[in-house]
Design a protein around this nucleic acid. Sequence first.
DNA 1: TCCGAGAGTGGAAACGTTTCCAATTGGGAA
DNA 2: TTCCCAATTGGAAACGTTTCCACTCTCGGA
Lengths: 328, 328
Amino acid sequence: MPTIKDVAVRAGVSLGTASRVLSGDGNTSLKSRTKVQAAAAELNYIANGPARSLRSARTKVLGLLVSDIRNPFFSELAHAAEREAMRLGYTVLLANANEDATQADEYLRIFASQRIDGLLLAPQGPASPQLISLLRSGLPVVLLNRLVEGVDAPYFATDNSQGVGLVLDWLQKRGHTDVAFVGGPTTISTGAEREAAYLAGRASHGISTDPAFIDAGDFLADGAERAMTRILDRGVRPTAVFGANGPTTLGAVRALRQELGASAASHIEVVSFDDLEWFEFVSPAISAVRHDAAAIGRLGVVGLLELMAGRPVASQRIATTFIDRSGA
Amino acid sequence: MPTIKDVAVRAGVSLGTASRVLSGDGNTSLKSRTKVQAAAAELNYIANGPARSLRSARTKVLGLLVSDIRNPFFSELAHAAEREAMRLGYTVLLANANEDATQADEYLRIFASQRIDGLLLAPQGPASPQLISLLRSGLPVVLLNRLVEGVDAPYFATDNSQGVGLVLDWLQKRGHTDVAFVGGPTTISTGAEREAAYLAGRASHGISTDPAFIDAGDFLADGAERAMTRILDRGVRPTAVFGANGPTTLGAVRALRQELGASAASHIEVVSFDDLEWFEFVSPAISAVRHDAAAIGRLGVVGLLELMAGRPVASQRIATTFIDRSGA
DNA sequence: TCCGAGAGTGGAAACGTTTCCAATTGGGAA
DNA sequence: TTCCCAATTGGAAACGTTTCCACTCTCGGA
């Protein structure tokens, strides 16, 4: 592998000048620039990232820790963040915590060792000691979609109460009062916010809620399937089901069909927080709150770079839209 | 941030000894080990990855280039590879080529700059110059799921012809001869292999194939939707549809419902190469070839490490299973 | 008792950059 | 022409590790 020294020799300039040309800062003459760039191209020179990082104390790498990469919401978000970062000259190191705090901590340690320049975080719940110490070390952090108590970082998150409001309106319009709610862990902000908004919204519509209709999983399909099964086992028969995220809705639908059979299940309307591509194929079609994962990813990257540049960053709630498929 | 020098001073040993303890190779006495580890823990020392990489010329990072992270097959594969790599002490840098050769090349360049130790590659099609030069530089590479002509690297891939054989058997059992085939790009090995196996299989079953029933997209949902629409626009009316990968089947189903309406579409049986979690919810349920993305990811990592260790690695075809949902 | 092998150690070089500093150059104003 | 300032340059230090080398010590065997 050619080094910058080889490039400098071939271009007939000093090592310092070659570096200034190739890293693109510092003053260089047009003549040096052409010579150095030609030499670099001829040698097929590719800068040694680790050496560059060691000396400059910047890696041009951002860490992105998501809780479940197999959740389409997060794979969309990750994809968008990665594109935006690349556009701005950064690389994204993606880590998947698998909705598990221990794995999250392992990755935070790796991030620290890799000396990432900034962190995009969609956390599991309360802040771990590992996270706290990372924050204390001054690493710029932006929270995506999920907030975490005691961590004072800018966030870019879906407006959960607005989204749940849309669901409540729709439920009312469709005349549903006996609604099963399958939530997520209340230790995760999205789980807590969506459940609170749902209950508060019903109360403000003047509808009381039988606790038998409420249960929660772990935001993964299997956990939600068990939660929905528990609700049905209590003997209650909802006319509609509300799943608090994509995998949760998947699990709930599975449980409905498993416990009641496909034909009885088809008499229950399902509504979901998170829109999945197959909702239109189910009978009856599943309506959903759609939030923009890609936008959150992009905003997060831009915000993080602002933060790294030392500029103040305002947190933002992103409004959702409702996809009403009940007519189909 | 504390450096290894701080650790050495605090432990009362030389820098060299501290390094030998912390990097875990070279001979060290029990006494030094305890002192150094204690000092490291007290200081909350985290090794500087870039410095380590620069000196040792190893980064402990593997690159994984997939073609579409939003395809559940690849997100599952990526997730499994990442877990396996972490278990073995490696980090995975994930890149998403978005089924686009230009983006793939951008990432290969970044990988080269980051000086990854090895590459897991699920390529787009023919080898790009960028890839060729990477291979020529001696970087260990393993191919995942997709092969590429002229690249002589070990591969771990689904047994496409075996899988397609299962589909053909099922089609015959169900009595389908007028089958629409929605394929992928023949520049991608999986696209070419699945189409070839399908046509050859029909021929060997003694069934001739009207080309009007055959079309191909780009292995993404939108492209497949257009391909399916083209088939229908030719006026042919298949009794079954075979989608050559997950997103392709999604697009095909969309087109069927769009062009024919949900009720007419429900008289067409769909079968897919790649099983998706929602296939059981559609009416009629979609049968599918299931291949083990997680296994491919894990085998790939293990194989790559073998290769990096200089040991010979045998390519492997992974058998598929068929999920028959036509009874449901 | 002596010798040799090997375990363990300290010191220093090296990895490939960026960046600081001082020196040189070039060009315009007086 | 002369002078001064800014632009540009070369040289060298520094980043935090690993690894080489040479040295010392310890222990077992002759």
